[in-house]
Amino acid sequence: MALLSINDIHVYYGVIEAIKGISFEVNQGEIVTLIGANGAGKTTILHTITGLIPPKSGLIELEGVDLTKTPAHKIVSMGIAHVPEGRRVFQQLSVYDNLLLGAYTRRDKAGINNTLSKVYESFPRLKERRNQVAGTLSGGEQQMLAMGRALMSAPKIMLLDEPSMGLSPLLVAEIFDIIKKVNESGVTVLLVEQNAKMALEIASRAYVLETGRIVMSGDAKELSTNDQVKKAYLGG
């Protein structure tokens, strides 16, 4: 059974259908990527999974449990952490407070401290800046904080929405390196990207999204050599 399975979801903004019947799945331990141009519906799919937008119809299941009716604030404790587009760290709170909010639903103090030291290990810069107000961090550091904050919930699966957005190539490489390490530590990853080249490099499987529909899917390596994909998403 898949860890996360999405079955024929339709999502509307008013009368406009943004997601027109999408199905896909993410298995335990995988990195799966959803690639597609701006406006294809990538963010909408992640928001639907975490309950920020209700789907009009369809089924979202985590380990066979239906999440479609679960309110957004109950999703994280079920094991899904969402690193939203644009980071959305709490600007006026310290790095440390942001990280602790990531563990908001957890009650085990020892476990939280354990996760915190692991997060600081993966992101030494966050440890250095733990008392700094998040709004004063650079874009790359805010991305790290958003990821660290998500990891604080000790998730089964992490949803990442365009982690490379607005970052220098060097930083993008660093962030993708961390994503790989996070995955190796046992967290399943669903990665949404416009940067298809990088995403296809680290993912095992990929889905290609076009205006609310999946138009192609398969092994990430194979897709990266596919002519159509090359032309549309890899710049030739």
Partner: peptide, 10 residues
């Protein structure tokens, strides 16, 4: 600051 992000924290 951000209702959506707050909900994602639980």
């Amino acid at each position: 600051e951000d209702k959506g992000a707050a909900q994602l924290m639980g």
